[in-house]
Design a protein around this nucleic acid. Structure first.
Lengths: 393, 393
DNA sequence: GATATTTAGTCCACAACATAGACTAAATGG
DNA sequence: CCATTTAGTCTATGTTGTGGACTAAATATC
């Protein structure tokens, strides 16, 4: 018989764990609300003023928060001292390998993007070792600049367009890049710990942490392959082995065109970038957008067909995973003006009678930065969730 | 900016919470492993022997565990005293309303099914208040019998075939019963707290806690409507508003037969009970099974068509939610012999090239009891997760 | 300008719960 | 019967939060 408690429930709690949790609680509230006084923290967390004072003292000593000036809530009384996240000690690096660029971002603990570097390159024609060597150079340059501005990089996450084995970091298959079985961490070897994660999942987390929407949504990303990241109550849904979110292979029509996955009628064959470019004889996405702007009938028809297919696949997804909102990113962000009405119409037609609310369709606010920001945000999130790892011993 | 920590991370931890967590840890390990000595508990949990002794003393005083005799692990040394879950103090009631029966189960803390009562009745032709009144009578009888055997019912959960508003217990729409907007808890009014939950989700939990498979699977249930319960790492996935798992409205063919949900080509129209009975002119499921056993060509063709549709829909589900195993329950458990090869074949054809492992298809081990057992199991699970609620004050 | 009032934050004795080592208890091997 | 091994209890101590007393810093009122 399986015991259905999560891993967190299987740990004994001692005094040190209690303190770690309360430190994380205080730091998390400060991070969530921008700044708080000790008195406000006491009210919000339920801990006594004494306890909050001690916890804040530890966080100040660790350089994770700073006192930022006095503030008064009421008309009279002693003014409180604002405590804010310090953006001047620790930072995280978000990295991204996509089809036609490499990207790195430096994000501080206050979630400010301090540095941005992007390098245009055709990653589909380069060998994986070449791509990763170029990324390593870009990242090392960023780290040097971080040291120059006084920030210590405590970790990084790399976004790649394909499923990833989270334990080993091996990219089993990235169709957008033409990669199979690439042992990314062995090749990357940066002077801080780096994990590898699927790009759609990280973009979803980017929208969550750097966007402004609600904490329950399905993020749709796509180039050749189409992936989805699902966030429910602020947490990423990964599935049993971490390979959830393969929206590109959801069935649009069971006897439709053959797909490279071996099935037929997958979403990718209707709405993937290759499908769109082939239908319009466009060279690349920019040319496709130019045709659409010019009102080219073939381009408009291809978008209409892609929009209907997206609507069908997304209606299946909504029935299965019940998101609150659908966010279109990747190529679909650029094509949003020509897709939105068709997709929204199809969702309303297929979902509108049974469901009390059809999830609204919105465009990504972060554009091509979403994945790299989500990557860096994951490291920031870990520091906030476990501040004791950052305390001096 | 949304702060993405779960609810549990937002609670301060004090001494009482620390004790509660450690009590839950000890009780959970005893529940998971059948019986343990204090010394073994100390080794497994990492708490000292002193701490474990005190925690076990509290649990004994609460009647949640008992000492069950001496046992020795090695060749010499003082024998240890086995501590086991007590099945003789608290119990939970699982209730179920399905199309053609009402069912109640009494389950003790050791997860033994102590009492079973099922009443055959056509719930589709009866009014909701009549159905719920009959269920109330059945449940009150079970409670009387529980008292007779010395068990105290601490709570219950009711399984219904349709989406449920978890906060209010209102059943918005149960197509299998013909119900809409039924305020079940107001009508039921039993002498213990009762929550209402979707039947497919509870059946999935039943397979998890009373079956013997791995803790990551998609459970497929079906009568007229087809629902799915998804369990990942021992936890039920519900979606943003609790309305995930609507497998019956996943698209099989976008321009297929119109569905009562307003869409076209939903799985329900191919593999739902009505679709199967209409295709074979069978009166009910038993007659359909008789036809299948006799080799009736129309019945076999209907199952083949249903199996292919299930395979298509399940391949979309696997791509999106990545389960380890697929469990067929409901009518599909009875039809398993005539469905399995087609479904398995379709899954292999659609998933076998890209995914390193195609999820195996298995039949439910619990049959029609799965939902009621899952319901009772949820109450049992809550007692184990929060034993301080059961301690004398 | 002085005093009363309000609110923030610190101080310190105490409580709750886990730890750690000493000790007792219960068994078997030699 | 004694030595050894292992389980479980006892008791002083340590860690971390609490709660009330107290100080500090502000404004309103006189």
């Amino acid at each position: 018989m399986t015991q259905p408690t999560g891993p967190a429930a299987k740990q004994a709690v001692r005094h040190d764990a209690m303190r770690a949790r309360n430190l994380a609680l205080v730091l998390g509230e400060v991070a969530a609300r921008g700044s708080l006084t000790r008195a406000a923290l006491s009210e919000i967390t339920g801990l006594t003023k004494t306890t909050v004072s001690k916890l804040v003292a530890d966080l100040i000593e660790a350089g994770l928060v700073v006192e930022a000036g006095t503030v008064r809530a009421g008309e009279r009384g002693r003014p409180g001292m604002e405590v804010r996240i310090s953006g001047e000690r620790v930072a995280a690096v978000g990295l991204e390998i996509n089809v036609d660029y490499l990207s790195v971002r430096l994000v501080d603990l206050a979630r400010s993007v301090r540095l941005r570097r992007t390098q245009a390159v055709d990653n589909r024609t380069a060998r994986p070792v070449e791509v990763i060597a170029a990324l390593r150079d870009l990242a090392l340059g960023l780290v040097d600049e971080a040291v120059d501005i006084g920030l210590q990089v405590v970790g990084g996450v790399l976004a790649v367009p394909g499923p990833v084995d989270l334990a080993t970091g091996v990219v089993h298959n990235a169709p957008n890049l033409g990669w199979r079985e690439v042992p990314v961490p062995e090749l990357l070897r940066l002077p801080f710990p780096v994990r590898v994660e699927n790009e759609a999942n990280l973009a979803a987390l980017g929208e969550l942490w750097f966007g402004s929407g609600p904490p329950d949504f399905l993020y749709v990303s796509g180039e050749i392959g189409i992936g989805a990241g699902l966030v429910v109550r602020g947490r990423l849904f990964r599935g049993a082995r971490g390979f959830a979110g393969e929206l590109g292979h959801v069935v649009v029509s069971p006897d439709g065109p053959p797909c490279r996955c071996g099935a037929r009628g997958c979403l990718e064959r209707y709405a993937g970038q290759d499908a769109l470019l082939t239908a319009t004889a466009a060279e690349d996405l920019t040319e496709l957008v130019t045709l659409l702007e010019a009102g080219d009938p073939r381009a408009l028809a291809a978008c209409e067909r892609a929009g209907r297919a997206l609507g069908v696949a997304l209606s299946s997804a909504v029935n299965l995973v019940d998101p609150d909102t659908i966010v279109l990113g990747g190529i679909f962000a650029r094509l949003f003006p020509w897709l939105a009405d068709t997709v929204t119409g199809m969702l309303a037609a297929r979902l509108g009678q049974m469901r009390s609310a059809v999830p609204p369709l919105v465009v990504s606010q972060l554009g091509t930065e979403a994945a790299a920001l989500g990557a860096a945000g994951q490291v920031i999130q870990q520091v906030i969730a476990d501040p004791t790892a950052s305390l001096p011993t």
